[in-house]
Design a protein around this nucleic acid. Sequence first.
RNA 1: GUGCCCUUAGCUCAGCCGGUUAGAGCGCCUGGUUGUGGUCCAGGAGGUCGCCGGUUCGAAUCCGGUAGGGCACCCCA
Length: 412
Amino acid sequence: MATLQPVRGTHDLLPDDARKHNHVVATARALGDAYGYGEIATPIFEQTEVFKRTLGDTSDVVTKEMYTFEDKGGDSITLRPEGTAAVARSYISGKMQDQLPLKFFYHGPMFRYERPQKGRQRQFHQIGIELFGVADPVGDVEVIALGAQILEKLGVQDWCTLELNTLGDTESRDAYRAALVAYFEGHRDRLSEDSKDRLHRNPLRILDSKDKGDRTIIEQAPRFDAYLTPAAQDFFARVQEGLTDLGIGYTRNERLVRGLDYYCHTAFEFTTDRLGSQSAVLAGGRYDGLIGTMGGPETAGVGWAAGIERLTMLAEQWPAQARPVTFIPLGEAADKALRKIAFELRGQGIAIDMGYSGNLKRRMARANKAGARLAVIVGDDELAQNQATLRDMDGGEQRTVPLAELAQYLKN
RNA sequence: GUGCCCUUAGCUCAGCCGGUUAGAGCGCCUGGUUGUGGUCCAGGAGGUCGCCGGUUCGAAUCCGGUAGGGCACCCCA
């Protein structure tokens, strides 16, 4: 029988990874709380329709990347490939429209059947936020600001740049799309195969093609700004102004686009050049048409998602681990006595490391490996006098303290 | 889904124009220290050379397939 392996593109979060992972989540959650974004946890699977309707039948995510299966009741179920659709579904099924504005923070695993790469797994984890019911650009600014501060708190902001663009309103976008298709049709034969395909499916996407031949054609392509309605221009100007007021730097990237119709106005990505071709670290935008598309009441929305694995790879500073106190009993009687004290102190939240076997030498080595700040040694000698030997693991000094007073020496 | 690269000890890697018992560093274990870790010294354990098949007198080494990882594309966090 072949050795058991994890499913391709999945991996275990060992304690060390999990600690980092949790730190990212905790940092995001704390800032989310500060902004009033309450945590929401939706199921990791949904009716397939939830994602089909929102992502569109033409997107790669729907056409080839979803984990879709039929459950025993015959329903088509999909492991969520992203969080926004699920949160929107919750909003709709919970009939929350008269509680607007609503602010949500979420985190959890997402699933996409893709070819794994560095910074890209089939099961990966995201943090994300959604703001429903705010049509004003202050919403866009707030959402971006929250993202920027999370990156800052994680110490990764220096490796990230905020790229910003606008997709305008429907009127702007329709006009632009028509102009773009007309232009590219004129150069159809020189377009890459991928881009020829995109011409029908997703013409805006041609703008960020990496194909060299495409790039020269794109340079001469019509510019979005020329097709923005005054209202859309004003909206974008107010987003930029809001960011500037907060001292959040950004660069305009006119090629930053989204393919789906319900996206509008602001599109942004915090990108990095440190993760190979996986440059997007935290990305989002405004999606005023999404909830309506899903069959809910027309509701403005803006939000973003960020990959926890990618953030973890970028971050270099992690909070120091709490250093435990290692209990070292010598002999059965001492073991019994210390187990009881450990039980009480652990109950008070004091981290006690205590092994299960071994002589003093072994147990000291264990204390060292555990990063203990103190070792509490109790042998027959100490036990007879109700005392413990307290060893400072850094300096090596030892002192004798009464067992009854142990707790006060171990606090802090 | 397409192209290219990689896979040897728990980890990081050397060995690879085929040829006796496959190596190093780190880690692990034991001893030097009967109740004292981290440094040092000595010793030891640990490998179906990813897997399957082929070529050959002989394969870690060459060839084919397959799985996993990586890079680029696609797409995206």
